[in-house]
Amino acid sequence: MSPEDRKYTREHEWAKVEDADAKLVSVGITHFAQDELGDIVYFDLPNAGDSVAYMQKMGEVESVKAVSDLFSPVTGRIDAVNSELVDHPELVNDDPFEAGWIMRVVLEDLGELDTLMSANEYDEYTGAS
């Protein structure tokens, strides 16, 4: 079961509000996504200060024998990128929803999140429910 405190995309990213006043959300990939990828070995990510746009490519994730595009679930400016992932990309395998967060983004409009799936909808989508 995916956590209910956040929203989900069909490309298997999640977005969670960290500070509603600051319009700050954290972004990552789901348990389902990391399981499909297998052992993650590398993230190619943008830098803090860069802009990301809803459902536009924001980077790449690599496992030993696959590479996948990462799509941003939100539109905004990157506040921080999880630097732990440089040396420990396996954090996303071990703890995709907490320690394995990928970046924090300051949104233009928190309302954008309303277009994403709830945990229930996402679990239904992936057949996990």
Binding site: V41, E62, S63, V64, K65, A66, V67
Partner: peptide, 9 residues
């Protein structure tokens, strides 16, 4: 680092 190569990418 095979994700650089043709059989994957």
């Amino acid at each position: 680092l095979q994700t650089r190569e043709q059989h994957i990418r």
